[in-house]
Each structure stands twice: as C-alpha cells, then as structure tokens.
Design a protein around this nucleic acid. Structure first.
Lengths: 252, 252
DNA sequence: GGCTGTGAAATGGTTCACAGCG
DNA sequence: CGCTGTGAACCATTTCACAGCC
C-alpha cells in the first residue's frame, strides 16, 4: 500500500543505494536470522541457503539474493550464508548496531502496546520517552518508562537524545504532535493516525493506517464472494502461499 | 497478491481490474471525501477538483485521476468531482456499502486499541467478535463487545457471520490464531505479528510489522546523520540544499 | 553438484502532457 | 477557460535464467 506524502529523496550518489523495498525486507531477514541463530545454537551448520532464508522470511529466494547483493558479497557459493556474519552485516546496513532512541507521543492503548513491544531492543530501537497530555497518565510508568507531559517534548527529547518519533495520539492531536517532535529536532516520524500530516521537507514521515489495511482486505473479500456470478473454473490455483506485505509505505 | 488471474474476459465492463496500489489509495480518498462532506455540509459547492482531493489525501493529482478512472467516469470536466457521488462510488468499489464483520483475536493493548478504533463503521467495518485465551479477559467487555474464549472461534464466527480476521496476539500464538480463523471459514486475515504465518492459498493474508516500520526509519536516520560526517568524496555538492519543494500543502 | 551473484526481461506503478469535453 | 481522462514515457521492483565459484 502506499499513502505517500511527497518525499525529497535526494538522488545524490552515495556509497550504495539500497532500494526502499529492499530495506523493508532486510529488516525481516534480520529477524529471521536472529530466530535461526537461537534455534540452531545447539546444532546445525551455522549457515543457511538463500532458499531457506527466503522461506523463513516469506519471500522469493531470487529476491532475497538480489537484496543481499546490495550489501556486498557475503555468501559462499555452493553453501549459503553464514548466519552470524550475515546478521551482523544486515544489522550494520540498517543501522541496528547503534541504538536509536525513540519518543512515543500518545500513551493510549496503541501507545502502550508499542511501549511494551518486545524485540525492539534486539533491533537497535530503544524507547527513550513517552508523552501524553492526559494528567492521569503523566507520571505513570508504562513499559518501565515514566510518561511525561506533552509540553516537555523538546526538553526531554534533547535530554534523551531522541532521533525517532512515533505518533499514537488520537487523530486531532496528530499534527500538533508532529510539530512538537519536529521542533524538538526529530527528523523521522512514524504516525498511526489517518489523515494528512504536514512536515518540513527534511523530515521523513511514514504512516500506518489500520483502517486502510482492513479496507483493503474488505475489498478483496468483496471480490471473492462476488465471484458467484460466473462459474469460472479457475479456483485460484495460485502457486505460492507466501505473503509479505510491507504494509504502508511512504517515501516515493 | 493475487486478484487478477487470467480471466476469460467477460463481455460486459463490470469488474474492472483495479491495481493493488490503487485500492489502498481509494480507501484514503474515501476518508478524505467523508471529511470534506462533513466540513462542507453547510456551505461549499459540493464538488472538488482532483487537485483539491489529491491534496486532502496526500497524493499527486495525476495519480488520483488515474485511480478514479479505474472506477469509471464520474468527474465533470472543467468542474471536478461531485463529493457525494464519488463517495458512493468509491464505497461501492471497495465494498464499503455492505458491512464486513471482523473478528479480533488477542485483546491485549493492541487488540483493545483496534477494538476502540473510531471510523471503522463509516467504512463498512464492524467488529463482530473478540477472542482471547486469558481467562481474566474472557467475559470482559471491550469497545462494547464481550470477549469470548479462543476455543469458540469457529462457533462465534459462524454466528456473527465474520469474514475478516485480525490477529493481535503475541507472536507465539499467531499461527494458531490463523489456523483457528481459517477453520472458522475466514478467508481474509490481517496480522500484526512479525514472523511468517502459513495459510492456504485461497486465504488473503496481510501483515503489519510495527518493528519493521521503525527499523526503516532508523535506516534513513542512520543515512542522514552519516551524511554529515561524510564530507568527502562528493565534490562539494552535498549541502542541505533541498530545492525540491515538497509542498504538502493542504488547501481550502 | 549446489548455490550465489547478477545482467536482462518482465511486471507493476507513477508521472507527464495533452486532447477533448463541459 | 478549467479540469478530467488517458496514452505514453518513465521509474521501481520482481522474476528469470544462467555464468561462475566453491
């Protein structure tokens, strides 16, 4: 899907240009690798073929190989990829080796879910601050972190060295939250609110709209059930079962 | 994604083939239109140009026109689109005119957030059932609906005529949740768990991985900050110059 | 032999630009 | 004249297929 909000995307020649779609999958590979490492800690060879990795991540093996080729040449022909090496290499590429501090604005159910989300740490993500406007929530502890007041975003973000912001407020507060984060120097924002949010050109904004995800399903569902019309004898002999949907994307 | 299998080309121009990316945006347009209708209920002309609509949805106007052209010809040249007509038409295309019943498995923070999500109804989505394994949660009421036990999915889904399932359980329970939903006859599933879920070929599975979204931001963030320290190579063409105006302007 | 790395082809999606209608 | 609808150009991504290395 794609709810894009124009992004500059400087075309300057940089070391290696990794396609947007590849970045999303690299994160999935990293996760699959971490899982594999745990499982095969006792036995196994310590390496995996592109086929195995692809299955574990839910993608096509050719896609995986091409994705990895953007990082460099880390596979061994005839054998596969060393799990440990590849984990480190992808982690490096994604910047997961160095922690990123995240500020979360809006500590409702969704915010709390995010604050308690496991597996951030292993990917270099650290929730550094929580904010809310509700006096009842300010001062409380969620996921081990004390909720601070919305008005202190600038101050706290500076103190906690936050570089990424997440907006999980109700819709009407989203723009204000974005503004506050931007003022605080945050240049990467993930928003869970529908609706347009305006940010300066140098700020990276991603959006995830839960209702849209469901509506896409509803669309397909409608199509499926509406198929009673013609007795076409092609019952979705679809080959693969795999399915990876990076969901909402921005960045054109 | 599979929606367009090789169709025998039926004579009538009934079901046009709508691209996946367009479907996602149609949902966004629908939302923008509903908002517009509310705002302009008192005054305004009752129609909007592709430019206005595009701005309200955060996309390019050419993209919007092309998207709408898949539905048919509903605009008026020299004028724009009638808001009410277009709303109805997009709603029809998306299947939002007829309600879809949704079952939600896993009523933790995330599940509760979804159950309380406003704006589902206006888009034809109705939460019909909530499930959890936790005895403490079963029997409780969330978002006006009583939480039922995981084991009764098949029974309750049939009773409530559920066609879409949402998985918001902890990771380890995800596959079991999917299996249960599939057994209950659900053929469209949205999962918020990372990791691979296997479903039969005729089941539509979408995934949203919160950690991946953040990791993508972290990647860009790493690039941004690395760019400042890397003042070599590029022949002084690197500054902060964003000549491209993003101009995500929201008008009228 | 098996598997990676990668050009090249195929597919899907976005943007341009303009003809044509209201 | 303004704005839609759309072919055509453009760009991104996926998939194929195979050469080359282990």
């Amino acid at each position: 899907m794609k709810i894009s909000q124009l992004e500059p995307d400087r075309g300057g020649a940089r070391p290696r240009d990794i396609p947007e779609a590849t970045v999303a999958r690299l994160a999935a590979y990293l996760r699959a690798l971490t899982l594999m490492a745990d499982l095969s800690a006792t036995a196994k060879s310590g390496s995996a073929s592109s086929e195995e990795l692809a299955a574990a991540a839910g993608v096509n093996s050719a896609t995986l190989r091409k994705d990895l080729s953007y990082l460099g040449t880390y596979g061994i022909r005839g054998v596969g990829y060393d799990i440990e090496l590849l984990t480190a290499e992808i982690g490096r590429a994604l910047g997961a080796h160095r922690p990123h501090r995240v500020a979360l604005v809006g500590v409702g159910n969704l915010g709390a879910a995010l604050a308690g989300y496991p597996g951030f740490l292993s990917r270099g993500l650290v929730i550094g601050a929580l904010f809310d406007v509700d006096p009842h929530r300010v001062g409380q502890t969620v996921g081990g972190i004390t909720v601070e007041h919305f008005d202190s975003i600038a101050h706290v973000c500076a103190r906690e060295d936050v570089s990424i912001g997440v907006i999980a407020t109700p819709e009407p507060a989203a723009q204000a939250a974005a503004d506050a984060l931007v003022s605080a120097g945050v240049r990467s924002i993930l928003a869970f609110t529908p609706g347009v949010i305006t940010v300066p050109a140098d700020v990276d904004l991603r959006k995830v709209d839960l209702a849209i995800e469901l509506q896409i399903l509803a669309f397909h569902e409608t199509r499926k059930t509406a198929e009673h019309s013609e007795s076409s004898l092609s019952p979705a002999a679809d080959g693969d079962t795999e399915n990876i949907s990076p969901a909402v994307a921005v960045s054109s």
